[in-house]
Design a protein around this nucleic acid. Structure first.
Lengths: 203, 203
DNA sequence: CTTCAAAAGTGCATCCGTTGCACAAATTGA
DNA sequence: TCAATTTGTGCAACGGATGCACTTTTGAAG
């Protein structure tokens, strides 16, 4: 979770941006800790602000709504997903790029991570968070579909693009129950790969 | 007031239920009128309650959240949809029943109805309503998929059921842009019909 | 270094959706 | 007629979110 992946970007952040990011993290951390301790609905905004030692106004400058405190990394995940398709190596197909991304990011925290499973239970057990996550997922598939359309030259509203986006985000979910999740993901994407090749040869 | 005292009346609804339905309608009508006049966000709950001459407490007894005021007929539409599949004539296929229902209910208000287009613009132009409608649509497809599974004897989580439910609710949407929407709907359902027949012959 | 403007944060009052509570009125059944 | 349930009311309050005026911090220009 606390991964400031600095593979090729040593983060040229000035002191200002660093402090901003720090308070943001302080808020999100305090919020998640309290939520996990006592449940989402039992923790108020003012309380979180106190725990992070900021005012409620500041809190809402960083997170537009309460639910966003839980899905802190939403924006990062989405841009990382889109980048995986846009900046894929020359000659690599879109489904292949999505498979790589899924194996690298989605499955990492899947096995045996207490913190992560607690997080999932928190979301699953809170209607407000379930709804928010669902809406988030739809936004991601939409954005992904648009990028796929751009990259493949197909019309933006082509059902094939939305379907591929849909399946690509669904596959890691479905693989969770399997004994070997990684294998299941690879299989699923092989299926998409062959189907996609027939439609958009070369991309 | 108006005493319709009738000795052996079949009385589908008692006086009480009728009054309850009346206040419900009064609230929903007042709300929709105000929303269309001045926009969803510009009208407060207390104002609507005033216009309908009830207290806010009473308002929330009828509608759990503000958005529900707009989608008043949500529950009715869903049960009507499910009933169209469950109570379809003997020997009629599921897709055919869905097509009939779509042509009868979904397209009726589609052409040239000022009131209806204004309603759609209201929803489309209000993020909160868009989100709510989206979530509603997901609930409907889920419920429909379960009924289809029951009726066809397929396992409840069979992708074919969810897919059929998805497409059946999507078809009327997609047909809106066409010059002849009814024809487009018929075509779409013909497609579903043939595909379905291969999977569940007899249902 | 000084100065200045933008950014970040604060404190406070307030709005608004929503809920809980105690209570009155209507309705029903005995 | 007398309870008991249902339905509606008035009011106060809670929690989220916003607007405003204001101070502090920061980056950079002069």
């Amino acid at each position: 979770m606390t991964d400031t992946g600095n593979g090729a970007a040593p983060a040229p952040m000035g002191r200002r941006e660093r402090k901003k990011a720090a308070t943001r993290r302080a808020i999100a951390d305090a919020a998640l800790r309290l939520f996990l301790e006592r449940g989402y609905d039992a923790v108020g905004i003012r309380e979180i602000a106190d725990a992070a030692d900021v005012s409620t106004t500041t809190l809402f400058k960083h997170f537009p709504v309460k639910e966003a405190l839980v899905f802190d990394e939403d924006a990062d995940q989405e841009s990382s997903l889109l980048a995986a398709v846009r900046d894929r190596p020359e000659g690599r197909s879109v489904p292949a790029a999505l498979r790589d991304h899924a194996l690298r990011h989605r499955m990492a925290a899947a096995d045996g991570d207490d913190r992560f499973t607690a997080f999932r239970e928190l979301v699953a057990g809170t209607p407000a968070l379930r709804d928010y996550a669902q809406a988030m997922w739809l936004r991601h598939t939409d954005a992904l579909a648009r990028v796929i359309a751009e990259e493949s030259g197909l019309p933006g509203n082509d059902p094939a693009c939305t379907a591929l986006a849909h399946f690509a985000l669904e596959a890691p979910r479905a693989a969770h129950g399997h004994d070997d999740p990684r294998e299941a993901v690879v299989r699923a994407f092989d299926l998409l790969e062959s189907g996609w090749r027939a439609l958009a040869p070369g991309d």
